[in-house]
Design a protein around this nucleic acid. Structure first.
Lengths: 146, 146
DNA sequence: ATTCATAATGAATAACTATTCATTATCATG
DNA sequence: CATGATAATGAATAGTTATTCATTATGAAT
């Protein structure tokens, strides 16, 4: 039950390459650890306002799919447990299994302080350019935790 | 068996308003005199590169549907039997039943010499600004007849 | 006109997608 | 922690679309 992450993953998959149908989408998502039924995918596709073309699912005009998506702050609040700067690194703890997709979402934000990210099962490491960057990013994420 | 006219009509219908599915498209086309099966519509939609969105069929990016369409010259060659200037009018004879859609296609060209068009069952009247315009347009269409 | 090749089409059906209905999770509040 | 409201989900199924397999039309070339 993590619609938010799943829908982000769907958009991500779409950027990677063409998805011909919901069956294919289902299999691709399963590889990423999302196990859902076809009905749910049909709903996701409606939510994201995707359209089906001869060559697979496509984004709507003007990248408005991103708009239909919950903001990262909501993801952080929902899945992140702890944030700790450590030198020029930021160590983020998430509920188990969510580190990977949350990291992907953070990546997409393209914050200037993120040089790179690595994600395990329940831990994300964000590499920042320097100690100051890590602290700044840390504060921003603490803020999101409400 | 007049794919060319039918596909033009489909695009025209799409401009008029939303078409939710092929059943609806089939009924709308029938009103215009095109009687075809669902299978054919599925093929037309592929040909025209339309995509299906939550709010019905939509044009592809960049109006490229027009590109997938045969040029007017082909329509004229196929459906027009005779062209005769008469003062500032151009009288066009078509095979029976095609005047209406052919006139629609000619209209869309927005030639400067066409002030307006009226179409019956097998006859199109194109009103031109003057005698010269009618003759010029007449020559252009004769040309299309090969 | 006959023949041949190609294109267009429909009926039947396979494939795919959306919805309904019931169930389960989540969350706020007493 | 119960309870009720709301959201998310899946199984079954209804609805929709794509494809297959014949068949028919069209046009070119004898």
């Amino acid at each position: 039950m993590n619609k938010a992450l799943r829908q982000r993953a769907i958009l991500d998959l779409l950027r990677q390459g063409p998805i011909a149908n919901q069956d294919e989408l289902q299999r691709a998502l399963r590889k990423r650890g999302f196990k859902v039924g076809q009905a749910t995918l049909s709903r996701d596709i409606r939510d994201l306002q995707l359209s089906k073309t001869a060559s697979g699912y496509a984004f709507p005009q003007g990248e408005s799919a991103t708009a239909a998506l919950p903001p990262v702050s909501r993801l952080v609040r929902e899945f992140v447990l702890d944030v700790r700067p450590a030198g020029n690194l930021l160590v983020i703890k998430t509920i188990v299994g969510s580190a990977q997709p949350v990291a992907a979402a953070l990546d997409e934000e393209e914050w200037p302080e993120t040089v790179g990210t690595v994600a395990g099962d329940d831990t994300i490491l964000i590499v920042c350019p320097d100690k100051q960057g890590a602290r700044k990013l840390g504060r921003r994420m603490e803020e999101m935790l409400k």
